[in-house]
């Protein structure tokens, strides 16, 4: 008896926290004087920027310029790196996420992340998408099933996998796996989605599918995407930020950056003179 009571209690609380994330009002991100070190090496140097809600922002720049490190600051994924040290403020909807009291797990529920290489868990397709819900302690089967279906539809994968949800996710193609990872992220209904070169390991057809998807998702989410691919940045993003050796060189409307950049270095990079 006691156990069942606890169960229902647990579920209620969890569902409440989920509903508490207001996805109808996507989040605004403010970055104030952020510096990052790995040991003695300074990877990010005094960056200030503001990212607008319901937009796609692309981070571009040569390898090692710090754009991935910077992206991982928004959901505090660098916390687990031993020598990592960060100074400065990152505010999401006015709240500094680097305050001591902030619960990292709660934060990451609101800020989803898609990685460079598709990294599905060695579990079934269904279990992959349901994972985020299950770790929150949700046990309501119907609720989970609905969310999984919704997420797979949003990720444009439902039609391809609806008959084999119990099959291993590892049997999917690379492009399908990456869309599965996007679905996995969407299932917990975050408000911001971080994408770290999500198409770099994929073929052109899979890439274009994911680009279309990003275009769709923008209506509901704030998306930040790191990319090596200039064309991709110009195709899908509203804003573009160009990084170079840990510094934010230029940041503005994508159209402007690609047609009329203010800085010489930006122009050199996007025209392919180095990188």
């Amino acid at each position: 008896m006691e156990i069942t009571m606890e169960k229902t209690l647990d579920q209620k609380v969890v569902v409440n926290t989920i509903e508490a994330i207001d996805t109808s009002k996507p989040s605004k991100i403010e970055v104030k004087d952020v510096n990052v070190w790995y040991g003695d090496f300074q990877a990010i140097k005094g960056i200030d920027m503001e990212i607008k809600p319901n937009t796609v922002t692309a981070f571009i720049g040569p390898s090692g310029c710090g754009k991935s490190t910077f992206l991982r600051l928004f959901n505090r994924m660098n916390d687990y790196i031993d020598s990592h040290r960060m100074e400065g403020k990152i505010k999401i909807n006015g709240k500094n996420i680097y305050k001591k009291k902030v619960n990292v797990e709660e934060l990451r529920k609101e800020i989803g992340m898609v990685f460079q290489k598709p990294n599905p868990f060695p579990k079934s397709i269904f279990e992959n998408v349901a994972y985020g819900l299950k770790i929150q302690g949700i046990k309501d089967k119907k609720f989970i099933e609905e969310r999984v279906e919704k997420a797979l539809k949003q990720a444009d994968l439902w039609e391809e996998v609806k008959d084999k949800l119990k099959k291993s996710a590892l049997a999917l193609s690379g492009g399908q796996q990456q869309r599965l990872c996007i679905a996995r992220t969407l299932a917990v209904e975050p408000s911001i989605i971080l994408m770290d070169e999500p198409t770099s390991a994929l073929d052109p057809i899979s890439t274009s599918k994911i680009e279309n998807l990003i275009f769709e998702l923008k209506k509901k989410y704030t998306i930040i995407i790191v990319t090596h691919n200039m064309q991709q940045a110009s195709r899908i993003s509203d804003y573009t930020a160009f990084f170079y050796i840990g510094e934010l060189i230029e940041y503005g409307k994508t159209k402007k950056i690609f047609t009329n950049p203010e800085k010489k270095r930006t122009e050199n990079y996007i025209t392919g003179r180095f990188g």
Binding site: D10, V13, V14, N16, T17, N103, E105, E106, K109, I135, Q136, G137
Partner: peptide
């Protein structure tokens, strides 16, 4: 205690 706090504990 919500479930996230419980998980943290």
């Amino acid at each position: 205690m919500n479930s996230i706090q419980k998980n943290r504990l």
